[in-house]
Simulated assay, not measured.
Amino acid sequence: MPGLYLIAILVSAAGIATIDARFKLAAWRSPWRAAVAVALGVVFFLLWDIVGIMTGVFLKGDSPLFTGIDVGPELPLEEVFFLAFLSYLSLVIWAAAMRVIERRASPPPPPAVGSDDVPASTEGQSR
């Protein structure tokens, strides 16, 4: 089915965007910074691909899963979407890892007075 690879990339990106929205990790925390980071990643990897194509290292290959649309010689449309997905996925994973590290580094907040987290008095209990 033509375009199946592009559909898979878009569905995967929607899943990562859902996680991002739920935990406000990247684009839902700072949309402009996330957009700039993803754009820089896409530009960097497109330049990398162009160099690879020019030196004969990267070849498009032939797959019925591609749309058949090329944005350049040996550069299918799906590659651009994949690079955007890769950059966004990396950004979300990095933000999630930083949040975990920050939470582990900071002490937990004290329990609220009257909450169930406060230990019961041990007065009158034997040890």
Rank of each mutant, 00 (worst) to 15 (best):
M1Y: 15
P2H: 02
G3W: 01
Y5Q: 04
Y5W: 07
I7R: 00
A8K: 03
A8M: 07
I9F: 08
L10S: 13
V11N: 03
V11D: 02
V11P: 04
S12K: 03
A14W: 07
G15P: 09
G15M: 08
I16D: 13
A17P: 10
T18N: 00
A21C: 06
R22C: 07
K24N: 12
A27F: 15
P31S: 06
W32G: 12
A34E: 03
A35L: 01
A35N: 03
V36K: 12
A37E: 05
V38H: 00
V38Y: 01
A39W: 10
L40H: 08
L40S: 12
V42F: 09
F44R: 02
F45D: 09
F45P: 06
L46P: 09
L47W: 12
W48K: 11
W48N: 12
V51L: 13
G52L: 13
I53D: 06
I53C: 07
I53W: 00
T55K: 08
G56C: 01
V57A: 14
K60V: 10
P64D: 15
T67M: 03
G68M: 14
I69N: 12
D70H: 11
V71G: 10
V71A: 11
G72L: 14
P76M: 13
P76R: 08
L77F: 08
V80F: 14
F81P: 03
L83E: 06
L83M: 12
A84I: 00
A84D: 01
F85Q: 09
F85R: 02
F85D: 02
F85M: 05
L86I: 06
L86F: 12
L91V: 10
L91Q: 03
V92S: 00
W94T: 09
A96R: 03
A96C: 02
A96I: 05
A97P: 05
M98S: 14
M98I: 10
R99P: 01
I101T: 11
I101N: 04
E102Y: 05
E102W: 05
R103A: 09
R104G: 08
A105T: 04
A105G: 04
S106W: 12
P107C: 07
P109C: 00
P109T: 05
P110F: 02
P111Y: 06
G114P: 00
P119Q: 04
A120E: 15
A120S: 14
S121Y: 04
S121L: 07
E123Y: 13
G124A: 01
S126T: 11
R127G: 15
